[in-house]
């Protein structure tokens, strides 16, 4: 069981600019992989391409979710197949309450004709909200509408806890969170870790990885994975920055 990305090339559909340039990465169920990398290297693009965002066009490669190529699927089909994306910049949906939104998302996973049981749903929702120390008033508020940066990130994790995906991609979930929130959110993620679930955690800061300890750390530069290591790689990057990896690439190219 794994989320397997093979030689992925993707460009911006509007102008053909290639952003992902032959990316290989496999997240096995039960593992946490972290991705670090300079601004603009393609981390968010990778997550959106995996989700099926219409702004990007895949020109080459495959993405296999437990062996099934998901690239031809609509974004909602991928979601229901078990892929979850916690966005770097979550969208605001005015008028749609958080509770109704999650309810619709869960309802969409049930077979035709089956109704989500309301009392069970709210019991579960409240349980997860308590876990994330979210005030009950967030159930009635419109999705992310007027939420602070940190509240939005917490709300992404709430959705993940409710939807129980097989593979979750967290794009800079830590940015915008205060120290306490970071611990709370991390424990929410850790509670979901298990043999049946894989995580891809995108971050700029080693600090998050103190709480969500990764099995593997990758460095994404210029649309490719240029370096892979253990959790100590994050510490090394924090100390040395990315230049040494870029230098390595330059040397490899000129050699």
């Amino acid at each position: 069981m794994s989320l397997e990305i093979r030689n992925l090339h993707a460009c911006i559909a509007a102008n053909g600019t290639e952003i992902l340039r032959g990316l290989d990465l496999t997240v096995e169920a039960g593992k946490v992989h972290a991705i670090m990398g300079p601004n603009g290297s393609g981390k968010s693009t990778l997550s959106k391409v995996l989700g099926g965002h219409p702004d990007y066009e895949v020109t080459e490669g495959e993405v296999l979710l437990d062996g099934v190529n998901i690239l031809g699927m609509e974004p909602d089909v991928r979601s229901r197949a078990g892929l979850f994306l916690a966005f770097q910049y979550p969208m605001e949906i005015p008028g749609v309450s958080n509770a109704n939104f999650l309810r619709a998302a869960l309802q969409a996973r049930l077979p035709e004709g089956e109704e989500l049981e309301a009392t069970d749903y709210y019991a579960r929702l409240y349980e997860k909200m308590d876990m994330l120390e979210m005030d009950r008033k967030f159930t009635a508020r419109s999705v992310n509408d007027g939420f602070s940066g940190g509240e939005k990130k917490r709300n992404e994790i709430l959705q993940m806890l409710m939807l129980e995906p097989k593979y979750a991609i967290l794009d800079e979930t830590d940015s915008g969170l205060d120290i306490d929130a970071l611990k709370i959110v991390s424990s929410g993620v850790n509670a979901m870790r298990g043999p049946a679930r894989g995580f891809l955690v995108i971050t700029h800061y080693q600090r998050l990885l103190d709480y969500i300890v990764p099995d593997v750390v990758h460095v994404l530069v210029g649309g490719r994975i240029e370096h892979t290591g253990g959790k100590e790689l994050a510490l090394e990057l924090e100390a040395k920055g990315y230049d040494w990896i870029k230098d390595d690439i330059a040397q490899a190219v000129s050699a």
Binding site: G51, P54, E74, P75, D76, A108, L163
Partner: peptide, 16 residues
Amino acid sequence: AEQIFYMQQRGLTEAQ
């Protein structure tokens, strides 16, 4: 389109 993508990413069809 971003809002629609966001909602689709949670499992709703475009029409939903």
